[in-house]
C-alpha cells in the first residue's frame, strides 16, 4: 500500500467535483453582482464609460482560476479550474452560452501564466499578484479584439487596463489569499492525497 506517491498533476474525480461545486457556490454567492453590473453599466452609459462596469467587477469572475491553482497546486489547475467555472456559468444559465467557455479559457490561461512564471513552486501573495497581472494582460488583449477596446482613445485603454488590474488584484489576489490562509490554517486540505 504505497500512499506517499509523488505529487500528481492528474485531475482526479474528487478534484473535478470539488472545483465544480466551489464554482457553483461562487456563482450563487456572486449572483447579486449581476445586478451590480447592470446598475453600474446603466449609470456609466450616459457618460460613455460602460466598459468600466465590466472591468471593475471582472476580478470576481476570474477568481476560480487562482483559487483552483491554490487548492490543487497542479500544472494546468488555473486553466481547467476557470474552464470548469465557465462551464458551470454556461450550464446554470449564464448570459452568453457557449461563448462563456471561450472567455473562461482565455481567463484561465491568463491566470495560469502567473503560476507558470513561478514554476509552480510558489503559492503566496507574490504568485497571486503575478497571476492577477498576467490575467489582466491576457484578457485585456482578448478584449482589445472581442470587445472592441482597440478602437478607444489611448487614455481610455490605459484607464480600462488599470481598472481591470486593480479588480483582479483585489479579488484574485487579496481575497483569494485571505480565503486560502483560512484553508491553510484549517489543515482541511492536508488529508487529501494529490
Amino acid at each position: 500500500m504505497q500512499q506517499k506517491a509523488a505529487h500528481s498533476n492528474r485531475w482526479h474525480l474528487r478534484d473535478v467535483i470539488l472545483i465544480t461545486i466551489t464554482s457553483i457556490f461562487m456563482g450563487i454567492i456572486f449572483f447579486v453582482t449581476g445586478f451590480l453590473y447592470n446598475g453600474l453599466t446603466l449609470a456609466l452609459t450616459p457618460l460613455g464609460m460602460a466598459p468600466f462596469a465590466n472591468d471593475i467587477l471582472l476580478g470576481l469572475w476570474t477568481m476560480a482560476g487562482p483559487l483552483a491553482a491554490f487548492m490543487l497546486q497542479k500544472v494546468g489547475a488555473a486553466t481547467i479550474g476557470e474552464l470548469l467555472a465557465s462551464a458551470v456559468e454556461a450550464i446554470i444559465g449564464g448570459q452568453w452560452g457557449p461563448s462563456t467557455l471561450i472567455s473562461g479559457f482565455v481567463q484561465g490561461f491568463g491566470s495560469e501564466l502567473g503560476f507558470t512564471f513561478t514554476l509552480y513552486r510558489r503559492y503566496d501573495m507574490a504568485s497571486l499578484s503575478l497571476s492577477a497581472l498576467t490575467t489582466a494582460i491576457v484578457t485585456f488583449a482578448w478584449d482589445l479584439v472581442r470587445s472592441g477596446y482597440a478602437a478607444y482613445h489611448p487614455w481610455m485603454i490605459v484607464a480600462l487596463f488599470i481598472t481591470r488590474f486593480i479588480s483582479m488584484w483585489v479579488f484574485g489576489a487579496l481575497l483569494v489569499s485571505a480565503v486560502t490562509k483560512l484553508l491553510d490554517r484549517s489543515h482541511l486540505l492536508d488529508r487529501r492525497h494529490a
Partner: peptide, 12 residues
Amino acid sequence: VGIWFSIRYFST
C-alpha cells in the same frame, strides 16, 4: 447600449 455609447464617444 453601453458599448454603443462608449464606442460612439470614446473611440478614436
